[in-house]
Each structure stands twice: as C-alpha cells, then as structure tokens.
C-alpha cells in the first residue's frame, strides 16, 4: 500500500488523472512529452543522489563531530588533491551526459517534420487567434486532429508573449516583428491548457486558451462547420485572402506568378529558394524573409532588380501579412 502511494511521488507510477501524470509532471499528451520527462527524471535522480549524499554527510558530521567543549583538538587536514579531482570530474561527466541527452530531445522538439499540418498563431494583448491557411478559416481556439504533426507559426501584434502547453512540454516566445515556430503531435484526443508565459501586462494571467485534440472524423466535421460559417459571412482567410490581396494591393503589377520576370521577381517557387542578394550574400526565403521583403523591401534587395518596391509597413494587418505569405508559399 505505502509503496504504491509513494510511486507517483518518486515519479514512477502513472496516476489515474491523466496519461503519464506524475507528482512532478503533468499528463504526457504529446509524442515529445515522454522524452522530455525521461530527461527530467534522469536529472532528478542524479540530483536526489547528490542531495542525499551531501546533506547526509553534513548531518552525520554535525552530530558525530559536535563540539563537546571549547578547545578540543581537530584534524590538521587541509585538503586532498585526489578527492578534489574526483569531485570535479564526476560532476563534469554527469554534466556532459545531461547536456547531450537534453540537447538531443531539444533538437527533436524544435525541428518540425516536413509533413506537418500548418496553423498560424497570432498573439495580442490578451488573446490568441488561430488561422488555418490551407482551410481558409480562422478560429478563437486551437482545434487539431489527433495523431498528426502540427506546426504552429506564431507572431505577435504588440508585445512579447509566450505559447505554452504544459501537457505537450512545448513552449516558445511569440515575438513581434518575426516568426517563431513550435510543433507537436498529440496522439490522443483531449483538451489541454494554453498559457501565456511571457509577461505582457494586465491581462497576462487571463491570456489562456485551450487546445482541443479531436479524432480525425470529428476534426473534419469541425472544419466543415467552420468553413460553412466563414462562407456565410463572406470573409476570406488564409490563402484565399492572400490571393485577393495580391491583386488589391497591386502586387500583380510587378510580380508574376508563372515565372515571368516583371519589375520584380516572380513569386512562384520563392518559398524555400536560396536568393542571391544585391550585396552578394545569399538567404533562404523563409517566412521571416518574405515578411521583411513585403514590409521593408529595401533591407534585402534581390540581385538583378532595382530597389523599387514600395514598403508596405503599416499598411497590412498581421492577418493580411500572414495571408499574403501563405498565398506566396502556395505558388509553385
């Protein structure tokens, strides 16, 4: 009885409340979570060992060598090089092991698989919005299909925020003026907290949301209902919105989408291409680069073109910028 009660405390058992939930860690609701927890518990046990050993020695010595009367003799010991070497080298080795295991899981956590399903996250004081570029919908909560790799590309309209789902063990700052990315795969349907973990003002602690993980069929049904709503309202989002903006903002005048060179470079196939710049450097065209090219085009001028594109800074909303980027990325 007692041992089984102790198990969750020690991080070994699986408590009933959630898959993989332990005394220390919340439920493991993503494919990443068990890996992170393994690293956590590795460090945890090393720590416990050191703590018990060291505090054990302190308490033992404190009793064993407690002063009985002033003036009693003490040892002349002043140190020991071999002992010092041991307790420098052992922590060093353990440190390297911790670093390596932590780094490997970290790499897994930051590189989204190529086949990931894309959702855009837009943070602002004090709410989250979620755009589904390939579905042409926008939602106020994050709904995702179970057992699918999901990549979130995040940006902020105002200050720093941070996207945190404890049950997934993922977190990343959301930074105004640039994109940051997290990804996860939630194998089982369920609901999980989203917290903002970067202080952002009065509403920081209520900037909460929920990830709803649905089985594929329920997810499809949810998508269909959202799309119906969007159509009824006539609002365009995602790639469709981008396409209309591309004409409305007169990008078409200077950019073709079939490879023809006009005043500016053609847009098809741009995403992921390595661009040569006028200053001789090269850059891979990712979201951040495309964003910058639209908002402040003269910062990085493509080789062979005049810096004649007008800056669009301040003329497009966060949603519109994202839509344009999604549209450009959809052209190949």
């Amino acid at each position: 009885m007692i041992p089984s009660l102790l198990l969750p405390l020690l991080g070994l058992g699986e408590a009933a409340a959630g898959q993989g939930k332990t005394f220390w860690m919340p439920p493991q609701a993503s494919t990443l979570a068990p890996d992170v927890d393994k690293v956590f518990y590795f460090i945890y046990w090393v720590d416990i060992a050191f703590f018990v050993l060291m505090m054990g020695a302190v308490i033992f010595f404190a009793f064993k060598y407690k002063q009985k009367k002033e003036g009693e003799k003490t040892s002349s010991n002043k140190g020991s090089h071999s002992l010092e070497l041991v307790w420098a080298v052992v922590p060093l080795i353990l440190s390297v092991v911790m670093f390596v295991t932590g780094f490997r899981v970290y790499v897994e956590s930051v590189i989204p698989p190529a086949d990931s399903y894309d959702v855009r996250v837009v943070a602002q004081k004090w709410s989250w919005a979620f755009e589904y570029p390939s579905e042409g919908i926008e939602a106020s909560e994050l709904v995702v299909p179970a057992d699918t790799n999901v990549r979130l590309t995040m940006s902020s309209k105002d200050v720093l925020h941070s996207f945190f789902v404890p049950d997934f063990r993922v977190k990343k700052d959301v930074v105004p003026g640039r994109y940051t990315v997290v990804w996860f795969n939630a194998p089982e349907p369920g609901e999980h907290h989203i917290f903002c973990t970067e202080y952002c003002g009065d509403g920081h602690s209520v900037m909460l949301n929920t990830v709803k993980v649905l089985p594929q069929d329920e997810y499809d049904a949810w998508l269909a209902s959202q799309q119906a709503v969007a159509e009824a309202e006539g609002d365009l989002t995602g790639v469709a919105l981008g396409e209309s903006l591309f004409t409305k903002k007169a990008c078409v005048g200077c950019h073709s989408i079939d490879g023809t060179k006009l005043v500016g470079p053609p847009m098809n196939g741009l995403s992921g291409r390595t661009e040569e710049l006028a200053d001789g450097t090269t850059i891979v065209a990712d979201d951040d680069y495309i964003r910058e090219s639209i908002l402040a085009p003269t910062t990085k001028v493509v080789a062979g073109y005049a810096p004649s594109m007008p800056p669009f800074e301040g003329q497009l909303s966060e949603t519109e910028i994202n839509a344009l980027i999604d549209y450009i990325k959809s052209l190949d």
Binding site: M54, A57, V58, F61, A62, Y65, K66, Q67, K68, E72, K73, T74, S75, N77, G79, S80, L83, E84, W87, A88, P91, L92, S95, V96, M98, F99
Partner: peptide, 23 residues
C-alpha cells in the same frame, strides 16, 4: 554546465571541512 563544476567543488569543500572538526 561549466559553472556548475566550480560551484559543486565549493560545496564539497565546505562539507569536507566539517569532517573531524569540533563543530
């Protein structure tokens, strides 16, 4: 991690100081 090592060394040294002292 490089800063953890010297910190650990200090802790060990304090504890070893107690050994065979008159506390």
């Amino acid at each position: 991690f490089g800063v953890a090592i010297p910190t650990a060394i200090k802790n060990f040294s304090w504890i070893a100081t107690l050994w065979k002292g008159s506390i």
